[in-house]
Computed example of a mutant assay.
Amino acid sequence: MFDLKVINSVLNELEEVRGIPRASIIEAIESALATAYKKEYGKKGQIIRTTFDPNTGETHFFQVKIVVDDSRVTFNEDEESKDASASSETDSLKDGRVLYNPEHHLLLEDAHKIKKDAQLDEEIIFPIESKGDYGRIAAQTAKQVIMQKIREAEKTSVVAEFGKREGEIVTGMVQRMERGNIFVDMGRATGLLPYEEQIPGERFSQGERVRAYLYRVEESPRGVFLRLSRSHPKFLEKLFEAETPELSNGAVIIKAIAREAGYRSKIAVLAVDNHIDPVGALVGQRGVRVSTVMSELRGEKIDIIEWSAEPKKFIEEALSPAKILNIVVDETQMSAVVNVSEDQQSLAIGKGGQNVRLAAKLTGWRIDIQSVKGKELAVAESSPIE
């Protein structure tokens, strides 16, 4: 009935190439054979199980019966028919009992004749006759169940593999583009880089290598999809972690990130070790580390500042490269009024208000930029850090 050479070849390929455990596939085959047997030869209420040896091709079928007594079952069909909720031999009556079915149940006294210490609800297994010819319908059923189990096992394996990598940078090849969305071949799964998660202005070609932040693993009827992002602040953080040993070993930590992907970002860092310059650690010798990150982000400008628990100092740093004359803070309202000289106004505000907007997002404070004479020039509201 089985071509053992083909089956073992498939089992080995699924385990080695796709990472699906051999035992899981054998379990799927056994389940399929039991389903096919019951469909062709089984009786109502029967529990059929199968064992399959891929080395010899031997298949053994068993019928399972549950040990019961009158506290578990009723022998009165009239009683069951009066209970609208009891629609089959395994549906419960109002008192929790079910109608006795000799194909499904085994009375306790009879079970003791087979096994002296048999207990209620225990399963007693009986070998049954193997059938060599399952029929066309049964064979098709077996094939369908096997394919379904293989898909389920593979999906579980893929979810387990990529679930461990959630929150990390992953690499794949551009598969296709549809309506602005990019589908990325990740090997055993497909990554989706939505239009809104891309860096504005960047373009990819089919077959091109792409790196992105894996922020969610999703299961769907069509398979497993990996949600990717290149505009997420965490992508920037992970890129720096890959370039900066001080970040990966915990000597320097990133306290906050404010990002407008493709244009400009601000990062606030803090050194756990006082002997380390946190800003210098991210910049790198001759700027090599920050340059590598900027290159991956298609030239996005990156401001790296030192985080401070002192609001005035932190806000001043966040507004760099502008020079600040004076800052008045209102800690109850989390707002700050910042005075700048005329020649520093454009730097403090930034193109389209970008610098003050990012500073407000980075610090979590509302920032009001004013001239020396107190004229309001720009206001940026704080927003939650992503």
Rank of each mutant, 00 (worst) to 15 (best):
T171M: 08
F183M: 04
G201Y: 02
E152C: 00
L193W: 14
G163W: 09
E154S: 10
K238G: 11
E241Y: 06
H232F: 03
S229A: 06
Y215D: 08
Q148F: 03
E218C: 02
V158I: 14
A142Y: 06
V174W: 01
R209C: 02
M173H: 09
K143M: 01
Q175R: 12
R216I: 05
R211F: 13
G163D: 04
L226E: 07
D185E: 08
E241L: 03
D185Y: 13
R216S: 13
G223N: 09
M177A: 13
S231A: 12
E219Q: 12
A138C: 05
L214I: 04
E154I: 08
L228M: 03
L192K: 12
V224K: 09
E196S: 15
P233E: 04
S229D: 04
E196C: 14
F225G: 01
Q148G: 07
A160R: 11
G191Y: 12
A138N: 07
E166M: 12
A189N: 14
F183Q: 07
L236Q: 03
S231H: 02
S220P: 00
R211S: 04
G223H: 08
Y213P: 10
K143V: 02
S157L: 04
Q144W: 03
E208L: 11
E218V: 15
K149L: 04
L192N: 06
F162M: 05
Y195F: 14
V184H: 08
V170P: 02
R188I: 00
K155Y: 12
K238L: 06
Q198K: 07
R165P: 00
R179G: 06
E161W: 13
G172I: 09
F240I: 08
E241M: 02
R230M: 04
V158K: 01
L193G: 09
L226D: 04
S205V: 11
M173P: 00
F204W: 14
R230A: 12
K149T: 06
M177G: 10
V224W: 14
R165K: 15
T141K: 04
Y195P: 03
Q144N: 07
R151W: 10
G187A: 09
K164T: 13
G180S: 12
P200H: 14
R227K: 15
L214A: 10
T156A: 15
R227P: 05
Y213R: 03
R176Y: 04
T171W: 08
